[in-house]
Design a protein around this nucleic acid. Structure first.
Lengths: 355, 355
DNA sequence: GATTGGCACTCACGAACGGGGAGTGCCAGA
DNA sequence: TCTGGCACTCCCCGTTCGTGAGTGCCAATC
């Protein structure tokens, strides 16, 4: 009973503090919220909440401020889902529908998310490991130099230039292209990598398929070339750079918080440029549609003690391809942010499913 | 004679102000620089410089600060080129040499430049208009859906998915691929666009090359498909998004200036996210190896009145492909920044030439 | 005529001071 | 268990004031 009211008080404190950015006192609280009690009662509740570690006062005789623990309780138990309005949904849909390719989808998502939340948005590019090989293309730039293009189901395109020992004719090239594609297309990249290794590994045995086997010298050129080509493909597939790619948007929103006391904008700006750090920040997304919230020191970086991360996975089905979310001060509108993150993740997933 | 000393005084003021970030007075000036005169003399010179608009005082009885006009004179006439040290050159070379593809080159450049200058670096992706078509690839995803991949000489890859009215067989596809490539490969994209329009435009006349002409129905399917494919290619070529792509790095360096008075970090952060704005900021690069400096209000944006841009073109030969540079406060180390920008531009150009 | 030392003046900056007020904790009464 | 009252704390903000860096001007000097 009183317990319940205490939680209501905590909720009120969080809400007020988030909107006013100032420590909230007992009097202001009863004025702004319809708690049916007097300031004195609220003060008693506050004392208890402070004892339990949910709120704190910056200094004696100041209002109260939620602690990380207080925000945590708020997020876990006091938050009511705040669904997007129809207008917002429409805006999201139309904004995202115009995307022409993967880069564009990611770029639009990050802008959208930062605008919706007025926070810094981070969107990880779909990771390679889950995607399948759609096509491999080989182009002879000069007879001994090939452009290798790897096209993945997510729409990502990787390219490498490789030198081959012997000049390749059109026939050789077509042969190699056929063999590589037969081995890799449709496979998960992990499986494709294995298949490709097999392709390059063993010395050319008896032709497996008469329709493919060319004249002797063609085969020789083909096998001479296959090794560097496969190597390039494997490198492109495993390239960990790909896993690290993220898009960041809305950094200007950071400027809104410069007023705050020891505004640690600096380390956050630095983190935003270190994509590895950023990915660690986003963390593992819950596999299901759950939105993850990491508050202040719950995160892995001491310097980002006063920033929170709201993130979720996105991608076809339950098969989370990648993570997306926003980064902002612990003092943030969690319900609104969580709703926005979830909504954007859903729409992006749908877009990717259609493509 | 006195004129000469006045310029020396201006130079000293700029140098001191840049390093100390504080208005510089006559006494400090004679102490730190070996001008052979007394503070009183320097004061007289300062009065003249102020009359002429090269310096100003924030308030009476404060030291002097260079004006935009003062910086301009400094950059134009008082700067001695500060060549990179051998170590720096080596660092640049090794840092840039590891790049695997175009994105990587741009990414590394932007990081390098921001580290060298401790400023925000901006690198424009090589613009399409100067590049040539290296290859066009067509891949059938399903019989009526094609993936069109456009590969340019700069290493950029654009891709589009197009729907075609009639299912296409392998033969049709190969035919179309041959024709498109024959028309476009090696051409500047402007010329290629014309050639492609011709290809799609006129109804199929007499076969120009017997080796290419397929059976009747192949031709029919081919020409039915050519129109949407060509359209997609034209769109990909003219896509102005491509011209707008830029990479930004070192935004964290902005945090170093938060101390400054009306530190207008906000508008700059906003500008950094608006690539169109950013490109306008970089401006037209001097065609030759010249480094362009735009100081404060010389630039196009009122809100960026206290930021300067140091930029130059880069790319093979004198044929500036794109622009790269740094953005920072008007109070910046111009000689050092200009040297770094020039050096990076040269190395990037060399890397691109080799690729 | 240019340079210099001297000197009075200006004014930002920081410290010290003090009232106002928001907020608290506690207690006694309902 | 809640409430009104009350004394107390201490941040905030405006004011005052001394200090010192820096200037402009002027008369003397080279």
């Amino acid at each position: 009973m009183q317990e319940e009211r205490r939680l209501a008080v905590l909720r009120a404190i969080v809400e007020d503090y988030v909107s006013t950015e100032e420590p909230v006192g007992s009097k202001a609280l009863v004025e702004r919220h319809r708690l049916g009690v007097s300031p004195a009662t609220v003060r008693n509740d506050m004392a208890v909440l402070e004892d339990e570690g949910y709120i704190a006062q910056p200094h004696t005789s100041a209002g109260r401020v939620p602690t990380d623990k207080g925000y945590r309780l708020f997020v876990d138990r006091l938050t009511t889902v705040k669904p997007m309005t129809a207008a917002e949904k429409r805006a999201i849909a139309t904004f995202l529908d115009g995307a022409v390719d993967l880069d564009d989808v990611v770029g639009r998502s990050v802008r959208l998310l930062s605008q919706l939340t007025r926070q810094v948005a981070v969107v990880q590019y779909p990771v390679l490991s889950r995607s399948t090989v759609r096509h491999v293309e080989l182009v002879a730039l000069v007879p001994t130099r090939l452009l290798v293009v790897l096209i993945l189901s997510t729409g990502r395109v990787e390219q490498r230039v490789v030198e081959v020992a012997e000049p390749m004719g059109d026939e050789d090239l077509a042969d190699l292209r056929r063999r590589v594609n037969r081995a890799a297309v449709g496979e998960l990249i992990s499986a494709a990598a294995d298949a490709l290794r097999d392709l390059a590994g063993p010395p050319p045995g008896p032709a497996e398929d008469p329709a493919v086997a060319g004249p002797d010298d063609a085969t020789r050129a083909t096998s001479a070339a296959s090794s560097p080509v496969v190597e390039a493909l494997l490198e492109a597939m495993s390239d960990h750079r790909s896993d690290e790619r993220v898009a960041v948007g809305g950094a200007a929103n950071l400027a809104r918080h410069v007023d705050s006391p020891d505004s640690a904008v600096r380390p956050l700006l630095e983190a935003l440029e270190e994509h590895v750090v950023l990915l660690k920040l986003l963390g593992e997304a819950g596999a299901d549609g759950a939105v993850t919230v990491r508050i202040g020191r719950e995160g892995p970086y001491e310097q980002l003690a006063s920033t929170s991360v709201v993130a979720t996975g996105y991608g076809p089905r339950d098969d989370a391809l990648a993570t997306l979310g926003v980064v902002g001060p612990t003092r943030m509108d969690y319900p609104g942010t969580m709703a926005a993150v979830r909504a954007v993740a859903r729409y992006v997933t749908r877009i990717l499913d259609e493509a």
